[in-house]
Amino acid sequence: MNRDAALRLTAFDDVSPRPAPPLIRTCCLSVHYGAKTAVRDVELDIAEGAVTALIGPSGCGKSSFLYSLNRMTDLIPGCRVTGAVRIDGTDVCEPGVDTVLLRRRVGMIFQKPNPFPMSIRRNIELPLKEHGVRGRARRAEVVETVLRDVGLWDEVKDRLHAPAQGLSGGQQQRLCIARALALEPRVLLMDEPCSALDPIASGVVEDLIRRLRGRVTLLVVTHNLAQARRIADATGVFWVRDGAGALVEHGPTDAVFERPAAEETRRYVTGLHG
């Protein structure tokens, strides 16, 4: 166990002697596209501050599951979510939930970096303004802080006015993460954040994920099993069962990889399958 984690555990113990209730708890969560069920009955608890990796073969519903957690599924025509997602006690699937506020607390990073077609600075300032962060100086401060957080500050501090589209793919992805962090989310959902990046850029993002652990609750979908082992405290394995994606295994990463309970997981993590 590395030193950071040890420190975090002791700090954790000081605050609460009992294990804290999970920050996110899904109950019977299913996602449907029209008549097709993409994800069925997922029951998953996620602890605050932990990094959770979601792995599984293509098409088993990892993205669909992730999208349902901050109601991005609302944007997909024909998509319907049933069951419950309790985040910090409130069910975010209720119709009355303010999705603007929800998504401020539960941010999302996409597979393909998607900065807005504007300057680097404005990419971060736009959501800040939207969420009522007043004052130029205050916003400039946040921009610098989050860009430092993602290790981009030194690379872009002289060209904050330049278009974000001019950055490399890895830099764009880190800018997107910085933009999400600027809103100080409690949860960050990442859908294959490294799969469009080369190994070096993806290593940088991986380091960043490790640094964010404890500060933000992270759910990371990845096809890279080695990466899942490196970054994740817990791992969930999705698999297609009876024509719909299901969570077939979930637990501490080491246990999932070394003593998998489900047959699919055993074959998948040993590279026999998928």
């Binding site: 999705t99 939207e130 999400a180 809103l183």
Partner: peptide, 21 residues
């Protein structure tokens, strides 16, 4: 659509998404 998704994921309202993005 990426821009629409990015805007939604950042909690931008539909009006701001329309006018600013």
């Amino acid at each position: 659509d990426e821009h629409r998704h990015a805007a939604a994921a950042l909690g931008l309202s539909r009006a701001s998404t329309l006018f600013k993005v």
